[in-house]
Amino acid sequence: MAYDLEFERPLAELDKRIQGLQRKGDRLKADERAQLRSLEQQLEERTRQIYGNLTRWQRVQVARHRDRPYTNDYIKLICDDYFEMRGDRRYGDDRAIQGGMASIDGKTVFILGHQKGRDLKEKTECSFGLTHPEGCRKALRMMREAERFHMPVITFIDTQGASPGLEDEQRGISQAIAENLEVMPRLHTPILSIVIGEGGSGGALAFGVADRILMLENAIYMVASPEAAASILWRDSAFASHAAEAMRITAPDLLELGLIEQIIPEPVGGAHRNHLEMAETLKAAILENLAELERLPMDVLLEKRYQRYRNIGAFATEPVKAGSGSNR
Protein backbone atom coordinates (compact mmCIF):
# COMPACT_ATOMS: atom_id res chain seq x y z
CA MET A 1 0.00 0.00 0.00
CA ALA A 2 1.62 3.19 -1.17
CA TYR A 3 2.05 6.36 0.83
CA ASP A 4 0.54 8.70 -1.70
CA LEU A 5 -0.84 11.63 0.27
CA GLU A 6 1.23 14.76 0.12
CA PHE A 7 1.94 14.95 3.85
CA GLU A 8 3.05 11.32 3.77
CA ARG A 9 6.11 12.15 1.65
CA PRO A 10 8.61 11.51 4.47
CA LEU A 11 6.89 8.16 5.02
CA ALA A 12 7.04 7.34 1.32
CA GLU A 13 10.79 7.93 1.34
CA LEU A 14 11.34 5.70 4.35
CA ASP A 15 9.09 3.10 2.81
CA LYS A 16 11.08 3.16 -0.44
CA ARG A 17 14.32 2.51 1.41
CA ILE A 18 12.71 -0.27 3.41
CA GLN A 19 11.41 -1.91 0.27
CA GLY A 20 14.84 -1.64 -1.36
CA LEU A 21 16.35 -3.60 1.52
CA GLN A 22 13.46 -6.05 1.69
CA ARG A 23 13.94 -6.93 -1.98
CA LYS A 24 17.34 -8.36 -1.13
CA GLY A 25 15.60 -10.95 1.03
CA ASP A 26 18.03 -13.58 2.32
CA ARG A 27 21.00 -11.79 0.80
CA LEU A 28 20.81 -9.04 3.46
CA LYS A 29 24.03 -8.51 5.36
CA ALA A 30 23.97 -8.21 9.15
CA ASP A 31 24.39 -4.42 9.17
CA GLU A 32 21.71 -4.09 6.49
CA ARG A 33 19.37 -6.16 8.59
CA ALA A 34 19.93 -3.79 11.50
CA GLN A 35 19.37 -0.86 9.18
CA LEU A 36 16.09 -2.37 8.00
CA ARG A 37 14.89 -2.81 11.57
CA SER A 38 15.82 0.77 12.37
CA LEU A 39 14.09 2.08 9.27
CA GLU A 40 10.95 0.15 10.07
CA GLN A 41 10.99 1.58 13.55
CA GLN A 42 11.51 5.06 12.15
CA LEU A 43 8.61 4.57 9.76
CA GLU A 44 6.28 3.60 12.56
CA GLU A 45 7.40 6.49 14.73
CA ARG A 46 7.12 9.03 11.95
CA THR A 47 3.69 7.65 11.01
CA ARG A 48 2.53 7.96 14.60
CA GLN A 49 3.91 11.48 14.76
CA ILE A 50 2.41 12.66 11.47
CA TYR A 51 -0.96 11.01 12.04
CA GLY A 52 -1.07 12.32 15.57
CA ASN A 53 -0.90 15.89 14.28
CA LEU A 54 -3.10 15.98 11.22
CA THR A 55 -4.67 19.25 10.17
CA ARG A 56 -8.36 19.21 9.36
CA TRP A 57 -7.67 19.35 5.65
CA GLN A 58 -5.25 16.42 5.94
CA ARG A 59 -7.96 14.48 7.72
CA VAL A 60 -10.26 15.18 4.77
CA GLN A 61 -7.68 13.48 2.57
CA VAL A 62 -7.39 10.50 4.89
CA ALA A 63 -11.17 10.21 5.11
CA ARG A 64 -11.25 10.14 1.31
CA HIS A 65 -8.29 7.78 0.90
CA ARG A 66 -8.85 5.41 -2.01
CA ASP A 67 -7.83 2.42 0.12
CA ARG A 68 -10.01 3.33 3.08
CA PRO A 69 -12.41 0.54 4.08
CA TYR A 70 -15.96 1.05 2.84
CA THR A 71 -19.31 -0.18 4.14
CA ASN A 72 -19.07 -3.50 2.32
CA ASP A 73 -15.58 -4.15 3.69
CA TYR A 74 -16.82 -3.70 7.23
CA ILE A 75 -19.88 -5.85 6.61
CA LYS A 76 -17.60 -8.64 5.37
CA LEU A 77 -15.17 -8.28 8.27
CA ILE A 78 -17.67 -7.74 11.08
CA CYS A 79 -20.68 -9.91 10.28
CA ASP A 80 -20.81 -13.66 10.57
CA ASP A 81 -23.88 -13.80 8.33
CA TYR A 82 -25.37 -11.35 5.88
CA PHE A 83 -28.28 -11.19 3.49
CA GLU A 84 -28.31 -8.15 1.24
CA MET A 85 -31.70 -6.55 0.67
CA ARG A 86 -32.12 -4.59 -2.51
CA GLY A 87 -34.53 -2.14 -4.04
CA ASP A 88 -36.94 0.45 -2.70
CA ARG A 89 -40.02 -1.40 -4.07
CA ARG A 90 -41.01 1.78 -5.85
CA TYR A 91 -38.57 2.56 -8.59
CA GLY A 92 -35.11 1.03 -8.37
CA ASP A 93 -32.10 -0.14 -6.43
CA ASP A 94 -29.62 2.57 -5.53
CA ARG A 95 -26.17 0.98 -5.23
CA ALA A 96 -24.91 4.06 -3.36
CA ILE A 97 -26.70 2.59 -0.35
CA GLN A 98 -26.21 -1.06 0.46
CA GLY A 99 -27.26 -3.16 3.39
CA GLY A 100 -29.46 -5.87 4.75
CA MET A 101 -30.00 -8.29 7.58
CA ALA A 102 -26.84 -9.45 9.25
CA SER A 103 -25.55 -11.30 12.24
CA ILE A 104 -22.90 -9.90 14.54
CA ASP A 105 -21.74 -12.33 17.20
CA GLY A 106 -24.90 -14.30 16.64
CA LYS A 107 -27.19 -11.31 17.02
CA THR A 108 -29.41 -10.26 14.12
CA VAL A 109 -29.20 -6.60 13.16
CA PHE A 110 -29.92 -4.40 10.17
CA ILE A 111 -26.76 -2.93 8.79
CA LEU A 112 -26.59 -0.44 5.94
CA GLY A 113 -24.51 2.39 4.63
CA HIS A 114 -23.04 4.36 1.78
CA GLN A 115 -20.84 2.51 -0.67
CA LYS A 116 -18.43 4.72 -2.62
CA GLY A 117 -16.96 2.00 -4.81
CA ARG A 118 -13.34 0.94 -5.12
CA ASP A 119 -12.59 0.79 -8.84
CA LEU A 120 -14.09 2.89 -11.58
CA LYS A 121 -16.67 0.29 -12.51
CA GLU A 122 -17.92 -0.02 -8.95
CA LYS A 123 -17.71 3.73 -8.37
CA THR A 124 -19.92 4.35 -11.39
CA GLU A 125 -22.36 1.68 -10.28
CA CYS A 126 -22.48 3.23 -6.78
CA SER A 127 -22.61 6.83 -8.03
CA PHE A 128 -19.51 7.47 -5.90
CA GLY A 129 -21.68 7.10 -2.82
CA LEU A 130 -23.94 10.01 -3.78
CA THR A 131 -27.36 8.92 -2.59
CA HIS A 132 -30.36 8.88 -4.89
CA PRO A 133 -33.95 9.04 -3.59
CA GLU A 134 -34.18 5.26 -4.00
CA GLY A 135 -31.29 4.80 -1.55
CA CYS A 136 -33.09 6.79 1.12
CA ARG A 137 -36.30 4.86 0.52
CA LYS A 138 -34.55 1.50 0.51
CA ALA A 139 -32.95 2.38 3.83
CA LEU A 140 -36.33 3.41 5.20
CA ARG A 141 -37.79 0.10 4.11
CA MET A 142 -35.02 -1.72 5.95
CA MET A 143 -35.44 0.41 9.05
CA ARG A 144 -39.16 -0.30 9.21
CA GLU A 145 -38.39 -4.00 8.82
CA ALA A 146 -35.89 -3.72 11.66
CA GLU A 147 -38.52 -2.06 13.82
CA ARG A 148 -41.04 -4.82 13.19
CA PHE A 149 -38.65 -7.52 14.32
CA HIS A 150 -36.91 -5.57 17.08
CA MET A 151 -33.54 -5.61 15.40
CA PRO A 152 -31.18 -2.73 16.04
CA VAL A 153 -30.15 -0.59 13.07
CA ILE A 154 -26.52 0.16 12.35
CA THR A 155 -25.73 2.74 9.68
CA PHE A 156 -22.35 3.55 8.16
CA ILE A 157 -22.00 7.07 6.83
CA ASP A 158 -19.58 7.74 3.99
CA THR A 159 -20.72 10.24 1.40
CA GLN A 160 -20.06 13.71 0.10
CA GLY A 161 -23.79 14.26 -0.06
CA ALA A 162 -26.94 13.38 -1.91
CA SER A 163 -26.83 13.21 -5.68
CA PRO A 164 -27.55 16.60 -7.32
CA GLY A 165 -28.84 15.23 -10.63
CA LEU A 166 -31.93 16.22 -12.57
CA GLU A 167 -33.47 12.77 -12.08
CA ASP A 168 -32.88 13.03 -8.34
CA GLU A 169 -34.91 16.23 -8.31
CA GLN A 170 -37.61 14.66 -10.47
CA ARG A 171 -37.94 11.66 -8.18
CA GLY A 172 -37.92 13.75 -5.02
CA ILE A 173 -34.52 13.63 -3.35
CA SER A 174 -35.66 16.32 -0.91
CA GLN A 175 -38.80 14.43 0.02
CA ALA A 176 -36.84 11.19 0.42
CA ILE A 177 -34.29 12.73 2.79
CA ALA A 178 -36.99 14.57 4.72
CA GLU A 179 -39.03 11.42 5.19
CA ASN A 180 -36.09 9.62 6.78
CA LEU A 181 -35.56 12.58 9.10
CA GLU A 182 -39.17 12.34 10.19
CA VAL A 183 -39.30 8.57 10.65
CA MET A 184 -35.95 7.91 12.31
CA PRO A 185 -36.64 9.86 15.52
CA ARG A 186 -39.68 7.66 16.14
CA LEU A 187 -38.29 4.30 15.02
CA HIS A 188 -38.96 1.82 17.83
CA THR A 189 -35.57 0.14 17.82
CA PRO A 190 -32.04 1.29 18.70
CA ILE A 191 -30.17 3.16 15.95
CA LEU A 192 -26.40 3.44 15.96
CA SER A 193 -24.63 5.53 13.31
CA ILE A 194 -20.95 5.47 12.58
CA VAL A 195 -19.24 7.98 10.33
CA ILE A 196 -16.59 5.78 8.70
CA GLY A 197 -15.25 8.27 6.17
CA GLU A 198 -17.01 11.39 5.00
CA GLY A 199 -20.32 12.59 6.31
CA GLY A 200 -21.62 15.27 4.00
CA SER A 201 -24.85 17.25 4.15
CA GLY A 202 -28.38 15.89 3.84
CA GLY A 203 -27.18 12.78 2.05
CA ALA A 204 -25.42 11.79 5.27
CA LEU A 205 -28.00 13.04 7.76
CA ALA A 206 -30.75 10.96 6.12
CA PHE A 207 -28.97 7.90 7.54
CA GLY A 208 -27.68 9.49 10.69
CA VAL A 209 -30.56 10.32 13.01
CA ALA A 210 -29.52 7.95 15.76
CA ASP A 211 -29.35 7.25 19.47
CA ARG A 212 -25.61 7.58 19.27
CA ILE A 213 -23.22 8.79 16.60
CA LEU A 214 -19.69 7.45 16.61
CA MET A 215 -16.88 8.62 14.37
CA LEU A 216 -13.72 6.93 13.28
CA GLU A 217 -10.69 8.93 14.35
CA ASN A 218 -10.00 10.37 10.90
CA ALA A 219 -13.57 10.64 9.70
CA ILE A 220 -15.15 13.99 9.00
CA TYR A 221 -18.75 15.21 9.23
CA MET A 222 -19.87 18.48 7.75
CA VAL A 223 -22.85 20.56 6.66
CA ALA A 224 -21.52 20.61 3.09
CA SER A 225 -18.37 19.25 1.50
CA PRO A 226 -15.44 21.65 1.94
CA GLU A 227 -15.53 22.33 -1.81
CA ALA A 228 -19.24 23.17 -1.77
CA ALA A 229 -18.88 25.27 1.37
CA ALA A 230 -16.00 27.23 -0.14
CA SER A 231 -17.96 27.99 -3.26
CA ILE A 232 -20.97 29.07 -1.21
CA LEU A 233 -18.90 31.24 1.15
CA TRP A 234 -16.25 32.61 -1.15
CA ARG A 235 -17.51 31.67 -4.62
CA ASP A 236 -14.46 29.51 -5.20
CA SER A 237 -14.10 25.81 -4.43
CA ALA A 238 -10.32 26.27 -4.48
CA PHE A 239 -10.63 27.48 -0.88
CA ALA A 240 -11.83 24.06 0.23
CA SER A 241 -8.94 23.58 2.64
CA HIS A 242 -9.79 26.88 4.29
CA ALA A 243 -13.44 25.87 4.62
CA ALA A 244 -12.39 22.53 6.11
CA GLU A 245 -10.38 24.31 8.79
CA ALA A 246 -13.10 26.84 9.57
CA MET A 247 -16.02 24.45 9.79
CA ARG A 248 -14.77 22.17 12.59
CA ILE A 249 -15.41 18.91 10.83
CA THR A 250 -13.19 16.39 12.60
CA ALA A 251 -14.15 13.83 15.21
CA PRO A 252 -12.41 15.70 18.08
CA ASP A 253 -14.10 18.96 16.98
CA LEU A 254 -17.53 17.38 16.97
CA LEU A 255 -17.02 15.55 20.25
CA GLU A 256 -16.12 18.90 21.79
CA LEU A 257 -19.24 20.48 20.28
CA GLY A 258 -21.28 17.66 21.79
CA LEU A 259 -22.56 16.48 18.42
CA ILE A 260 -21.14 12.95 18.59
CA GLU A 261 -20.78 10.48 21.43
CA GLN A 262 -17.52 8.67 20.79
CA ILE A 263 -14.35 8.54 18.70
CA ILE A 264 -13.17 5.14 17.53
CA PRO A 265 -9.37 5.01 17.24
CA GLU A 266 -7.85 3.99 13.91
CA PRO A 267 -4.76 1.84 13.36
CA VAL A 268 -1.45 3.71 13.12
CA GLY A 269 -1.41 5.50 9.77
CA GLY A 270 -5.17 5.41 9.28
CA ALA A 271 -7.91 2.84 8.74
CA HIS A 272 -6.66 2.13 5.21
CA ARG A 273 -3.40 0.68 6.59
CA ASN A 274 -5.10 -2.19 8.35
CA HIS A 275 -8.68 -3.04 7.47
CA LEU A 276 -8.83 -6.04 9.77
CA GLU A 277 -7.60 -4.19 12.85
CA MET A 278 -9.98 -1.32 12.11
CA ALA A 279 -12.91 -3.70 11.70
CA GLU A 280 -12.15 -5.42 14.99
CA THR A 281 -12.03 -2.15 16.91
CA LEU A 282 -15.23 -1.04 15.21
CA LYS A 283 -16.99 -4.31 15.98
CA ALA A 284 -16.11 -4.03 19.65
CA ALA A 285 -17.45 -0.47 19.76
CA ILE A 286 -20.66 -1.51 18.01
CA LEU A 287 -21.31 -4.40 20.39
CA GLU A 288 -20.60 -2.29 23.45
CA ASN A 289 -22.88 0.53 22.35
CA LEU A 290 -25.70 -1.76 21.24
CA ALA A 291 -25.62 -3.57 24.56
CA GLU A 292 -26.01 -0.27 26.37
CA LEU A 293 -28.79 0.96 24.11
CA GLU A 294 -30.71 -2.29 24.31
CA ARG A 295 -30.82 -2.11 28.07
CA LEU A 296 -33.01 1.00 27.87
CA PRO A 297 -36.80 0.65 27.86
CA MET A 298 -38.20 1.76 24.49
CA ASP A 299 -39.91 4.91 25.78
CA VAL A 300 -36.71 6.02 27.50
CA LEU A 301 -34.68 5.29 24.39
CA LEU A 302 -37.02 7.34 22.20
CA GLU A 303 -37.21 10.23 24.64
CA LYS A 304 -33.43 10.34 24.89
CA ARG A 305 -33.14 10.24 21.11
CA TYR A 306 -35.60 13.11 20.83
CA GLN A 307 -33.83 15.19 23.42
CA ARG A 308 -30.46 14.43 21.79
CA TYR A 309 -31.61 16.44 18.78
CA ARG A 310 -33.94 18.86 20.55
CA ASN A 311 -31.02 20.28 22.48
CA ILE A 312 -28.70 20.89 19.54
CA GLY A 313 -28.07 24.54 18.83
CA ALA A 314 -25.98 27.44 20.06
CA PHE A 315 -27.67 30.76 20.69
CA ALA A 316 -27.97 33.54 23.22
CA THR A 317 -30.87 35.56 24.48
CA GLU A 318 -31.23 39.28 24.76
CA PRO A 319 -33.92 41.31 26.45
CA VAL A 320 -36.73 42.35 24.13
CA LYS A 321 -37.93 45.90 24.18
CA ALA A 322 -41.59 46.28 25.01
CA GLY A 323 -43.75 46.65 21.95
CA SER A 324 -41.21 45.32 19.52
CA GLY A 325 -41.84 42.09 17.71
CA SER A 326 -45.44 42.89 16.94
CA ASN A 327 -46.48 43.52 13.39
CA ARG A 328 -48.58 46.52 14.21
Binding site: L181, S201, L205, M222, A229, R248, G313, A314
Partner: peptide, 15 residues
Protein backbone atom coordinates in the same frame (compact mmCIF):
# COMPACT_ATOMS: atom_id res chain seq x y z
CA UNK B 1 -22.15 27.29 6.60
CA UNK B 2 -20.79 29.46 9.42
CA UNK B 3 -22.39 27.27 12.09
CA UNK B 4 -21.14 24.06 10.50
CA UNK B 5 -22.71 20.81 11.58
CA UNK B 6 -24.91 22.60 14.12
CA UNK B 7 -26.82 23.95 11.12
CA UNK B 8 -27.22 20.54 9.50
CA UNK B 9 -28.52 19.11 12.78
CA UNK B 10 -31.32 21.71 12.85
CA UNK B 11 -32.87 19.73 9.98
CA UNK B 12 -33.05 16.68 12.24
CA UNK B 13 -34.25 18.69 15.23
CA UNK B 14 -37.13 20.33 13.35
CA UNK B 15 -38.10 17.10 11.61
Amino acid sequence: MQEGLLSLMQMAKIS
